[in-house]
Write a protein that binds this DNA or RNA. Structure first.
Length: 506
RNA sequence: GCUCCUGUGGUGUAGACCGGUUAAGCAUACUGCCCUCUCAAGGCAGUGAUCCCGGGUUCAAAUCCCGGCGGGAGCACCA
């Protein structure tokens, strides 16, 4: 064996050389054609709703790549449909992205560039790459379906130019559109002379009625990505068929072409993201609003106690793939738990109280707020009346010893509706049951909202939000709203208000 | 229906472009042990995938080719 090895080494040097080992890749896969320092990515949300986990995935990928290549990230509000955009959404999206910790090198709106888009439109028309179509909508769609060119496509450049002018004066909404000359017989339906600009008379949230001719998504993204210097444009999979159009438009315009790549949409089982299903839920009062803890909106996730860093780790763990999958919410929870664990004050809380009277208790005790981290301590005023969890008393007999966590040992002297016990010192023994407790006199009644899956298939889950009426230590009221706490032996919760907490995860 | 995309343990992925030395790495979930005044976090170990199926190419295929099947998406004057 050794002999052979030597022979091979001398006869065929290099044959036994270590193969370039495939080392474990960290993070996103490398980008083709990416030059360090000159990569530009972009996140182009439409301001037509509240940001959700899907936006987070896209924005995080965009930012991670920009960061990876020491490049730039552009936030561009894709606001080319005045019927859908609303001012509050521009702000909501920005707030959500800030919360996620995403930093942009530039923020702009597609609507800033309307004039430029008009120029490009004229260029298209002038080069006969597009025409103005005045057919009825139904006719157009029927023709597209049947691969039939409509008569407007036969018009000369002059006619199109005339009609183009009329789009700004005579024509009304629905009367005329600019269509790209694609290929009406293409297998790819997107290429069958798609809409580039159309008339919309609704007021735009930023520009009011300054314009009435608006570019379509396909026209706007291609041109905008190109002029924004985007080198790599990412979008979700459902846009895949539009790549051909994207490149065709830029070819016709002789503009620089970014590379377009797509990734799978992110969704959670039973947690709808689409406005189509969310809106009725809110209108019918089935959920309280866009920050209802059952929803995958960023507001809701935040309110529920999910940290932005957890979302980022989660998104990165999903990778950059086109495989469609329902992401496991529990993975997000796991990342979150690790972050939140070291920052959460531990408090006692009783769900199903059992009364017990303990005699011989000290006046007060001081307990640490966290088992290992230095998070201060709190002093608890003791009293004979104590609440224990009913469940914990289940298998207890008279004479048994139990340990009230942080307080000391207690031996049971009587059971029943009013159990009794006697304080039995503070000596630690290992095999004693350790249970949590709350002083009755000072117990604070609070409500804990426990969110769970909103839908099972198409079916709305009527019990998706459980309300628990519980007794917490009074220290709860001294905590600031928004802090994450761990109710011992129960789970993590985020303080939503003085009287309400929201269950984060176990 | 047509077109495109996709298919690795329960789940999400790495590996696939450049086929062999890992019959498959990581995370999550689960189980057990350790630690612990929590059923959390942490540490350790373990269960679990013949890489959708069937052919083919090859000395050799999760990796290349062909054909099925399953899943998703698009077929808007929405993005």
């Amino acid at each position: 064996m050794e002999q052979q090895r030597k022979t091979i080494e001398s006869e065929f040097p290099g044959l036994l050389a270590e193969k370039p080992k495939k080392e474990e890749r960290e993070g996103l896969p490398p980008l083709e054609g990416a030059q360090h320092g000159s990569v530009v990515t972009r996140f182009p949300p439409e301001p037509n709703g509240y940001p959700h986990i899907g936006h987070a995935k896209a924005a995080i990928i965009d930012e991670e790549y920009a960061r990876m290549y020491d490049g730039k990230l552009v936030l561009r509000f894709d606001d080319t449909n005045p019927e859908a955009e609303r001012l509050e959404y521009y702000a909501a999206i920005k707030v959500g992205l800030d919360w996620l910790g995403i930093k942009f090198d530039r923020v702009k709106n597609t609507s800033d560039d309307i004039e430029l888009l008009y120029k490009k439109s004229v260029e298209l028309l002038g080069g006969n790459f597009a025409y103005v179509c005045t057919c009825k909508q139904e006719t157009i769609s029927a023709n597209r379906r049947e691969m039939r060119p409509c008569k407007c496509s036969l018009g000369q450049v002059e006619q199109n130019m005339e009609r183009w002018e009329k789009m700004f004066s005579k024509y009304k909404q629905g009367d005329a559109i600019v269509r790209f000359r694609g290929d009406i017989k293409s297998e790819n339906t997107v290429m069958r002379d798609p809409v580039m600009l159309r008339i919309i008379e609704t007021k735009h949230p930023l520009l009011a009625d300054k314009y009435r001719v608006w570019p379509s998504y396909d026209f706007a993204v291609a041109v905008e990505d190109s002029i924004d210097g985007v080198t790599h444009a990412f979008r979700t999979k459902e846009y895949e068929l539009r790549n051909e159009l994207y490149y065709a438009i830029l070819d016709a315009l002789k503009m620089r072409k970014p590379r377009v790549l797509e990734f799978s949409r992110l969704g959670f089982e039973g947690m709808p993201v689409s406005k189509r299903v969310l809106r009725p839920l809110i209108e019918e009062g089935k959920v309280s609003g866009y920050d209802d803890p059952r929803l995958p909106t960023l507001e809701a996730l935040k309110r529920r106690g999910i940290r932005p860093e957890a979302i980022r780790k989660f998104v990165m763990s999903l990778g950059f793939t086109k495989a469609d999958t329902m992401a496991p919410f529990e993975t997000l929870e796991s990342f979150n738990r690790k972050i939140v664990d070291s920052e959460s004050i531990r408090l006692n809380m009783i769900k199903n109280p059992a009364n017990i009277k303990v005699v011989g208790l000290p006046q007060t005790i001081t307990v640490p707020n966290h088992p290992t981290k230095e998070m201060g301590s709190r002093t608890i005023q003791l009293d004979e009346g104590v609440y224990l969890e009913q469940e914990d008393l289940q298998n207890i007999k008279v004479g048994d010893k139990i340990r009230l966590m942080g307080l000391g040992n207690v031996s049971i002297t009587g059971l029943g509706p009013q159990a009794t016990a006697r304080y039995a010192g503070d000596e630690m023994t290992s095999d004693i049951p350790k249970i949590h407790w709350v002083v009755q006199k000072t117990a604070q009644k609070i409500k804990i909202l426990v969110p769970s899956q909103l839908f099972f298939g198409e079916q709305f889950n009527e019990s998706s939000l459980e309300e628990l009426n519980v007794f917490s230590e009074p220290y709860y009221s001294e905590l600031k709203d928004g802090v994450e706490i761990q109710f011992v032996r129960f789970g993590y919760c985020r303080k939503d208000s003085l009287l309400q907490a929201i269950y984060t995860h176990r």
